[in-house]
Amino acid sequence: MGSSYRQFCPVAKAMELLDERWTLLVVRELVSGSQRFNELRRGLPRMSPSLLSRRLHQLVRAGVVQRHVVGNDVRYVLTRAGHELRPVVEALGAWGIRWVGELGDEDLDPKLLLWDMHRNVDHAAVPDGRTVVHFRFRDVPADLRDWWLVITGGEADVCDADPGHAVAVTVTGSLRGLVEVWRGDLTWPEALRGGVVQVSGPETLRRALPGWFTLSGFAAVPRPTSPA
């Protein structure tokens, strides 16, 4: 845990734990349902494994997380104290999407976008069997350009290499454009009409695609009509 603020204020005491770099984002991932180390890494692709281990150890020591080990399966599970941080994370996210400025290019990450999309699939809306969605981002380096989302049996998986299955639909566009759709800054119809995103495949699947995802939990947050 970081150095003390030397204040009795409960905000100060809470921030002694939570304001260290990446800590609250680790909590965000745990609140979102990630439990295994590799799941947490995929939700925090720019965080080093050693720092993630350190932050998890701090959260365990603080009683926010419990480490469960069954054989080779290690999971990090929120305690009651950890679950009580959910409204804190949600309030911060809602405030951030309302009041923090535009995204910089360095904020755009296809790994995080696809990981977030995979856990927000509306499986009841996706056709039965295996459905593969190919995403191609035309404005990123070649090694990050192509991604596949494989949806089957109530589960979804993200692949950065062709899984070899037939593709149902292909989504092509700018990374920024799809991030803006995901965040609710731009609607699917606006993105499609403006050419920011194109969807190719059978017409019924093209039309259905937007309904396969529930979008980010912050997409529906009302935005201010003018600066404060």
Rank of each mutant, 00 (worst) to 15 (best):
A94E: 10
W182D: 08
G33A: 11
G129N: 05
E90Y: 06
L112I: 09
I151Y: 01
A220V: 05
E180L: 13
D143T: 04
D162S: 04
V199P: 07
L114P: 01
C9L: 14
S53Y: 06
A156Y: 04
A12G: 07
D185C: 06
F8V: 11
G63E: 15
G194V: 08
L78K: 14
P224Q: 01
G82F: 10
D143A: 14
F135I: 00
P222A: 09
V133H: 00
Q35K: 11
D128C: 10
P189I: 01
G177S: 15
W148S: 00
S53H: 11
V88D: 07
R138D: 04
W22T: 02
L44S: 11
S32A: 15
V74R: 09
V74S: 05
T172D: 14
D157S: 14
V27R: 08
I151G: 02
R61I: 10
L149N: 05
V181Y: 06
F135V: 01
S226M: 01
A228K: 14
P45Y: 05
V221S: 01
P189E: 03
C159E: 07
I97G: 07
T23K: 04
E203S: 10
A156M: 03
P87S: 09
W99N: 12
P127G: 04
L215W: 04
T172H: 02
E84W: 12
L186I: 11
V121L: 01
L17D: 09
D162N: 10
A142Q: 08
L209M: 14
L215E: 05
G217L: 10
P163S: 00
L30C: 11
T187A: 09
L215M: 13
T204Y: 01
M47V: 15
V140T: 08
S34P: 05
S48A: 15
A14P: 10
R36S: 13
P224E: 03
D116E: 13
H123D: 08
R61V: 13
V31Q: 12
G2Y: 13
M1V: 12
E190R: 15
R86G: 07
D109T: 04
F37H: 02
R28K: 15
H57C: 02
W22V: 04
E39H: 03
A228I: 07
L30Q: 12
D19W: 00
V70L: 15
D139M: 05
P110N: 03
T170C: 03
L52C: 12
R75V: 02
S34Y: 10
D160R: 09
R28N: 13
P202H: 05
A220H: 10
D157A: 14
L17G: 15
R183M: 09
G184A: 06
H83W: 12
R130Q: 06
N72H: 11
G194N: 15
A125V: 03
R176D: 02
A62M: 05
L149H: 05
T152G: 05
G93Q: 06
R223C: 09
